[in-house]
Design a protein around this nucleic acid. Structure first.
Lengths: 340, 340
DNA sequence: GATTTTACCGAAAACGTTTTCGATTATGTA
DNA sequence: TACATAATCGAAAACGTTTTCGGTAAAATC
C-alpha cells in the first residue's frame, strides 16, 4: 500500500508541492479556491503527513519519554495512566521504559530516549540511583526534564512530589492518637529521599508527642515487598512483644504485616495498630482494611506532564523557563487497622 | 547544545559524508585506517545518529504501538511489563495507548499509531469493540499486527490467547469437585469473546457433571468491578440461598463476592465456595485467599511481542509470513475459598 | 497611464541519513 | 609494458516535509 505524499497531490492538481503544503497548513498566501481543491483531494486520497519527514524537518517528535522503576505497581500504573491520557490529548505520545530499580539500566534508557530525540522526559528515580550524571546529561542536551515522586534535590529541574516528611508525620501521629505508645517503623531502603523523609516524619512525631525513639524498632526493607512486611512483623512480634503500632513504608508491606498478625491471631487494631502508605486499592478490601496515607498518583502524573509540556513549549520558543516544584497534598485515610 | 552530524566528522577528517557513514556501519569498501579514524572521532565527539533522519531514510521507526483497555490492571500491567522489557532488548521502543474500553478511542489510537508509522502494533481489544474496520485498516496498511487476550476470531492476523473455554470449565469443575451442587456464574460483558468462552466452559462443566443449567444464576457484569461482585453476591445471597458455589469472571469481582460474604458472616468455603480468574496478587493475601485460574500475563506479553518481531522481520525482507495463534496453558490455583 | 499594493504561487534549500554506482588509484598478472 | 583486478573513495539521489524568498499578475491608488 503506497502512502500518498504532497508530491502526488501537487502532480494531480498541477500545482507545486509548496502550495499543497501551505494549503494544508492554512497559510494565507494561497487562494481559497486552490486551498479547497487541495483539501478535497487530500481527503479523498486520505493523505497523512509522513511523520518521519515532519520530525526531521521540525526537529521535534511529539513524543515524550517516561522512565519509572516498575510499571507493575498500583501507584506507578496510575501515574502512567494519567500521563498517557493527558499527553495524547495534547498531541503527544509516550514511550515508557522501566529502570527495574537499577541505576545502570536507568542510564541506558536515558541514552535511548536522548538518541530517539524525545521532546521531553518524565521520570521517577530508581531506589539505587546515586550518581546523577546521566540526568545532568539530559539537561545539558537541553531536553526538558520533570522528576516526580522519587526525585533528587540536587537536580536543577522541575519536580512534582508529596511532602513525605509531613505525610510520615501524619501517619505516625495517627497511630499515636489511636493510642499507640510504642511504634515500630518498617522503613524503605536507605537511599531514596522518600523513605528518608517518611522516616524523619516518624521521628519528628515521636518527639513531638514525647515518645522515645528506639533504633531497634526501625526495620529496613530492601525490596519493599509483601514478604518483608510479613517477616518483619514476625520479628517484631517475637522480639518486641510490647510494640502496639506499626507504620509501614507502603501498603504492600503493611498488608504483609496484617497477614502475619491475622495468621497468629493477634487482634488488629486492639493489640496492634497498623498504618500503611500509598492507598492501594487492595488495602480497602483486605480484612481488616488498612489505614493508610493517600498518595495521589493520578494527580501527580497529571501535574508532571503539564509542567513538562509547558517547559517544552517555552523551550521551543527559545524562552526562559523557571523550574517549579509542586507539592501535592496527602491525608490520612482511616480504616479498620487503627482506631480513629 | 549542537548535535554532531556525519557532515562534521567528514569535514574534520577531510573525507566525504559517504565514507563516514560507511565506516560507522562497517562497510567493506573503506580502508581499516579511515575506519579507525572515523570511529575514533565519532567516539570523541559523541556522535549519535539522528534518528529522525534514519527513520525517514530507512522507513522504519524501531517503535511498536501497544493498545490495551487500561493499564491500571494487574493483568495488563504485567503484559506491558513483559512487552517493553523484551522490546527494548531487541532494539524497539514501545508507545502505549489506552482504549478505556471505548471503540471510538480505539479507532483514534489506531489512526495515531499508523500516522506515527510504528513498525508494528500489539493490541488487546476493548470490551465494546464490535466494528473491526480500524483493524482491517492496519492490515491493509501492511503494518504487522498481533492480537492478544481480547481478540477477534474474524481478524486475519497472529494471536496469543489462553483457552478461556477450557479454563472456565476447569474453574467450574473445581467447584464441583469441591462439593458444590448449585453454582452461580458472575460473567463478564456480553460482547467480548473471553467472557463468552468462560461462560461456555461453565455451562459445559455443569452438563458433564449432570448439574442443571439455570439461567437465573447467571449475572452479567458491565464494568467487571469489585462493586459488581459485592452487589451480585448480595443478590445471590438474598434470592438464591441454596447457591453453594460462585465462579466469578475475574478476581476483582471474586474479591467483591468474598467481601460481601465476610461481611454478613457466611463461611467460605463451608457455606459457599468461590473461585475467581486471573490470579491477581491481591487474591493471595485476602482472607480467605481466593482460588483462581492463573492467567500468564507476562508470558502472553512475551509471546505476542516475539510473534510481532518475527512478522516485522519477515515483512521487512518482503517475505511471506504465516499467521500463528498461540494458546497458553492455564491451571487452577487452589486456595482457601474452595475445598480441594 | 504610471506606480504601488496586494494576492498568489513556486523554486530551492534544508533537515541528516543511506545507498547506488561510477571513478580513481594501487596491486597483481601475463 | 599492458592489462585486469582489487581496494578505496565520493558524487549524487533519495526519503517527504517546511519555509524563505523572490517573482508574476492583478487590483488598487494617484
Amino acid at each position: 500500500m503506497k502512502e500518498v505524499t504532497l508530491k502526488e497531490i501537487a502532480l494531480e492538481l498541477g500545482i507545486s508541492i509548496t502550495t499543497v503544503s501551505k494549503a494544508l497548513k492554512n497559510y494565507t498566501d494561497v487562494s481559497p479556491k486552490t486551498k479547497a481543491a487541495v483539501l478535497k483531494l487530500a481527503e479523498e486520497l486520505n493523505y497523512k503527513p509522513n511523520s518521519f519527514a515532519v520530525n526531521l524537518r521540525t526537529k521535534e517528535s511529539k513524543t515524550i519519554g517516561l522512565i519509572i522503576p516498575e510499571i507493575v505497581h498500583h501507584f506507578f500504573s496510575n501515574i502512567v495512566n494519567a500521563i498517557i491520557e493527558k499527553a495524547e490529548k495534547k498531541g503527544y505520545l509516550v514511550i515508557i521504559l522501566q529502570s527495574n530499580e537499577s541505576e545502570e539500566l536507568e542510564k541506558k534508557q536515558i541514552d535511548l530516549l536522548i538518541s530517539k530525540r524525545v521532546d521531553g522526559i518524565l521520570m521517577s528515580l530508581s531506589n539505587n540511583t546515586k550518581n546523577l550524571d546521566h540526568l545532568r546529561k539530559v539537561i545539558e542536551h537541553d531536553i526538558p526534564l520533570v522528576l516526580f515522586d522519587k526525585i533528587s534535590k540536587l537536580l536543577d529541574c522541575s519536580k512534582v512530589v508529596i511532602d513525605d516528611r509531613s505525610a510520615g508525620y501524619d501517619a505516625t501521629e495517627h497511630l499515636i492518637k489511636s493510642g499507640c505508645k510504642k511504634i515500630a517503623h518498617i522503613r524503605g531502603p536507605l537511599n531514596p529521599q522518600n523513605s528518608i523523609d517518611r522516616f524523619l516524619g516518624y521521628k519528628k512525631a515521636l518527639k513531638d508527642y514525647n515518645l522515645p525513639f528506639d533504633n531497634s524498632l526501625i526495620f529496613t526493607c530492601e525490596k519493599v515487598s509483601f514478604e518483608e512486611g510479613y517477616n518483619f512483623a514476625k520479628k517484631i512480634y517475637t522480639e518486641h512483644k510490647d510494640v502496639d503500632g506499626i507504620f509501614a513504608i507502603t501498603d504492600l508491606v503493611g498488608i504483609g504485616v496484617v497477614a502475619y498478625f491475622n495468621e497468629v491471631g493477634i487482634k488488629i487494631p486492639e493489640q496492634i495498630a497498623i498504618i500503611g502508605f500509598s492507598n492501594w486499592f487492595m488495602s480497602s478490601v483486605i480484612s481488616p482494611s488498612l489505614s493508610t496515607i493517600d498518595q495521589p498518583g493520578f494527580e501527580m502524573g497529571k501535574s508532571a506532564l503539564k509542567l513538562l509540556l509547558k517547559e517544552i513549549k517555552a523551550h521551543k520558543k527559545g524562552k526562559e523557563f523557571k523550574f517549579k516544584t509542586i507539592v501535592l497534598p496527602t491525608h490520612v485515610i482511616k480504616r479498620n487497622s487503627t482506631f480513629n
